[in-house]
Amino acid sequence: MQMQFKYLTMLTQISEWFNIPIFALEIINPNPITARGICKIPGYIRDSYTVKKFDSIDGLARKCGVRPEAILLLNQMEQEILREGETIEIPWQVKSSIVNPHFGYDHSRVEQDIQTLYEMYSMFQVRVIGESEQGRSITEITIGNGPLHVHLNASFHGNEWVTTNVVMQFVQDYVHAIATGGHLYGIPAETLYTECTLSVVPMVNPDGVEIAQYGPHDEERPVYRSMLLHEGVTFQDWKANARGVDLNNQFPTNWEIEKNRKWAKIPAYRDYPGAAPLTEKEAIVMQKLVEEKQFHRVVALHTQGKEFYWGYEGIEPKESALLAARFERASGYKAVQMIDSHAGFKDWFIATYEKPGFTIELGEGVNPLPIEQFESIYRDVIGILVEAIRPL
């Protein structure tokens, strides 16, 4: 919510009047000492209200959970006199969820919710870092200003779209905790914000997610049906991007091994590594993001298995084992150092930068996991996400 101020007003006063931590106000208002003109108030919306008989500023303020000065400021009123029937604006703190994790995210909804969260809280930066093979935007969210730089992503695979639900819920919980002086997994949100700069890509493979959820467009259906290859396979099983390439087999680290042993030798709904490394737009976007930001750690969310992979060919640093122990304690997920897999995002990051990288396999069952698992998945994994953005 934005407010117009006629007079010089201290952010400390606004903090007290709206019951918002001064830290949260300073994040989104460029002048950390005073507000003059426009000031952003995180986590609030303004609503029209028709004054009823016996209403008072004090009574409305108590109902809204703010000080009377907040209502006076919002309406540019100098006296606490209300007239029955007049319309004023009152501030409501947002308590309902913007993110609805009980419905699968597609590309349009994730973009809409990112924008709504930004308008509501303004505590993160948003930018488009590239586009998919079918021209859908790939968006990065950045939260925090700490020296530790961490990257988190979801939906590398189309039929693992529930990972986007987890990431979006985490982003909402994080910014709400900042705005209200709250905690995440027992850690003050302000502490996390000042310790870590977190990069989040909620949907790496928007085309694959669309195909897995809705199937291809009618005119494309014959082409995509030919990529299913196996009897009984449906579009819900689609892991690949729009060109039938598995994005998590697209990275240069021992790509030839995966190429030679994967069953798919042509574009398919899963397991085709492509004609060469880094041929797909989405994989190139992720490579360039890592090269630009030089992250200290990366975490990729996948499904399923209730385990996570933290090593690669013995190249991983000692820090990886320490973080893996933290993740295991926080989640109950099994820590697996080595698996026989190459050319993945995590593999490439560890091999290229010799820094910690993790693949987290959320939930249990058969992909796509039912959305009914969301609550238990999120309850298990939030500890990992918080530990990932904490210094050792």
Rank of each mutant, 00 (worst) to 15 (best):
R136V: 03
S56V: 00
Y185L: 04
S199I: 12
E280W: 00
E316A: 10
P368M: 04
I384N: 02
Q236P: 02
Q294P: 04
I33Q: 10
Y193V: 11
I315C: 06
M77R: 06
G344V: 07
K262L: 13
V298S: 07
Y272G: 04
E364N: 13
K265N: 09
V200C: 11
E131Q: 15
I129G: 01
D271R: 03
V150K: 01
L392V: 12
V94S: 09
H102D: 14
A240E: 02
G130N: 05
P391T: 13
L289H: 07
V386N: 02
L278V: 05
P32E: 10
I315A: 09
G232I: 04
E195M: 15
R83D: 00
L385G: 03
G365S: 06
E256I: 07
L198V: 14
K239I: 05
I382T: 12
R46V: 09
N75F: 04
E316L: 08
L322K: 15
L60M: 01
T87N: 04
A325Q: 13
Y7P: 07
I382G: 06
T9L: 06
R136P: 06
D207F: 03
D47W: 07
G65L: 03
K239Y: 08
R326T: 10
I38R: 14
P267W: 00
I339D: 08
A330W: 03
G146Q: 13
N249Q: 14
E210T: 08
K259T: 01
